[in-house]
Design a protein around this nucleic acid. Structure first.
Length: 508
RNA sequence: GCGAGUGUAGCUCAGGGGUAGAGCAUCACCUUGCCAAGGUGAGGGUCGUGGGUUCAAAUCCCAUCACUCGCUCCA
């Protein structure tokens, strides 16, 4: 594991040194868990996004795109469940230094009382034998009734306190119940604090007339609230999908592991709408299809695995992750969720509008079911980066190469005059002009040719084109392959076709 | 938020009360010309920030900020 950490350290340092990723606001000592993409980083990121968009939207005639705004009506987040689910009251035990969710502590306490009720019931059942009437017992036995009342009053008080945002009373409740920390066994608690996982902001320039808004914590809701607009205007028939990429914001309590967990990050999501009852078929379809997408990038199959969720979120009836083996272990890269009709139905209820689809095949209107594929663009970036980073030995010397899939490489080709005289730079610049319209190219004449090759290796450029004296005579150049370091001499006219074949999406 | 660690040049780090250092990187010139680190020279730091002790603080003390790691959360 120490070795993995070492590799990860190097990847992070490399990302900075070669202009892929900088920490946000570094000039001011940095801003935690926020990162900026540098000149090479933005190219790679754009290429990943393009590749996703092409394969999801352009290659599927039943998927269309959308770019919804980051600001959304605040009711959206009530409907989606985020307002409730993203507000956790937390409390620390000062002795054990452990942190707990206050609601969980209280619920566990209630659960203990409930188990006492069960014990009483069992005991009674034994005592009364066949004539035992559980319902009657539970409603009449004074001890059980007392327990039940206690549970109800605790939960009511807790609900009331949460509703009033009265965290002082939540703490008082915990103290009154005598809840102790399982580790230290003490009641030495801090105050209860609320963690807001959504970022709040205001719309409207005057303080008193402003409306509280949230920065969206996921892009999906923009798709759901536009379901009718898109379906009608693009004349889509079920099953069909809506895809969107964009920024999302989460106030993570801790943010670690470089760009794996960021406060501001970018998602690539596709929500696929299906007839109720067909969701599992499509869930399986997208599970398979998304895994194939990852494998199409040439990454080793062993680096991925599925992880099925046991504890499903409130909206899902099936969910799995595609995990990638990051340098710090297998971690979630993409989620495929069968979200049922939860979201659309909830928006229907909250908005008071009909969010339904009339299905001409069965002559019926219904709220569609949704299968979601949701991948973190930044996580995909880290996947590509950490998977590409390689150190190898060449003639007793280290070579550092990013073996990025060529279609994703920030720079497709470097054009290098062997020397910076005798008209070689001019010839090289001619070639640059002929290629740079279609490919992101770099021209370099500084330093020895070997040094330039290695610099290009370090940013993952698949091709180096070297212009030498022979080029002036017969219009040929050498084309060096990043991975094999082999060179072949080819006609300048062939360059465009060869590079296109290697870096294009269509490999035929 | 708690605990531990770190903060000196673009990067990696040395220096632990007395004029701020090295290697690499950068820039210029020379040399070489197909797999990085040849020669000469140059630029670059009020040692994270603020305060204190001292004749004197990068160095000792206090505070503060940021980052890293662990714990709590994570569709």
């Amino acid at each position: 594991m120490a070795n993995y950490e070492e590799v990860f350290r190097k990847v992070v340092a490399h990302a900075k040194e070669y202009g892929f990723i900088f920490q946000s606001s570094e000039l001011y000592d940095g801003l935690g868990a926020v990162y900026d993409y540098g000149p090479n980083g933005v190219e790679l990121k754009n290429n990943i996004r393009d590749y996703w968009w092409k394969s999801m939207v352009n290659m599927n005639d039943n998927i269309v795109g959308l770019d919804s705004a980051i600001f959304m009506h605040p009711a959206t987040w009530k409907a989606s469940g985020h307002v409730d689910a993203f507000n956790d009251p937390l409390i620390d035990n000062k002795d054990s230094k452990k942190r707990y969710r206050a609601d969980v502590l209280i619920e566990e306490h209630v659960a203990r009382i409930e188990s006492k009720i069960e014990k009483e019931v069992k005991k009674a059942a034994k005592r009364f034998g066949d004539s035992f009437d559980e319902e009657q017992f539970v409603s009449t036995n004074p001890r059980v009734v007392g327990y039940k009342e206690k549970c109800t009053s605790i939960m009511q008080r807790f609900a009331q306190a949460m509703n009033d945002n009265d965290l002082v009373d939540v703490k008082a409740l915990i103290e009154e119940l005598g809840i102790v920390c399982p580790f230290s066994g003490t009641k030495n608690w801090t105050d209860v604090r609320q963690f807001n996982l959504m970022f709040k902001t205001q719309m409207g320039s005057t303080a008193d007339g402003a409306t509280d808004l949230y920065l969206r914590p996921e892009t999906a809701q923009g798709i759901f609230v536009n379901f009718l607009n898109v379906q009608k205007t693009a004349r889509m028939k079920l099953p069909f999908g809506i895809a969107q990429t964009g920024k999302a914001f989460r106030n993570e309590i801790v943010a670690r592991q470089f760009i794996f967990r960021m406060r501001e990050f970018e998602q690539m999501e596709m929500q696929f709408f299906v007839r109720p009852g067909q969701e599992m078929k499509w869930y399986e379809h997208w599970k398979e299809s998304r895994m194939q997408w990852h494998l199409s990038l040439g990454i080793d199959k062993e680096q991925f695995r599925f992880h099925d969720h046991d504890n499903l979120a409130h909206y899902a009836n099936a969910a799995c992750d595609i995990e990638f083996k990051f340098p710090f272990g297998f971690k979630e890269l993409e989620g495929i969720h069968s979200r049922t009709d939860f979201d659309l139905k909830s928006h229907q209820e909250h908005s008071g509008r009909k969010v339904q689809y009339f299905d001409p095949e069965i002559n019926e209107s219904y709220v569609p079911y949704v299968v979601e594929t949701s991948i973190g663009l930044d996580r995909m970036f880290l996947t590509i980066l950490s998977n590409s980073y390689q150190e190898e030995e060449v003639n007793g010397e280290n070579r550092l190469v990013l073996s990025i899939p060529p279609m994703l490489s920030p720079v497709k080709a470097a054009i290098l005059p062997l020397t910076k005289k005798d008209g070689l730079p001019e010839k090289a610049k001619e070639i640059l002009k002929s290629l740079q319209y279609d490919f992101n190219c770099q021209y370099e004449e500084k330093d020895s040719i070997g040094k330039r090759y290695r610099r290009q290796d370090a940013i993952g450029t698949p091709y180096c084109i070297t212009v030498d004296h022979q080029s002036l005579e017969n219009h040929t150049v050498t084309l060096r392959d990043r991975d094999t370091m082999q060179q072949e001499r080819i006609a300048i006219e062939q360059l465009h076709r060869l590079i296109s074949k290697k870096v294009g999406l269509n490999r035929d």
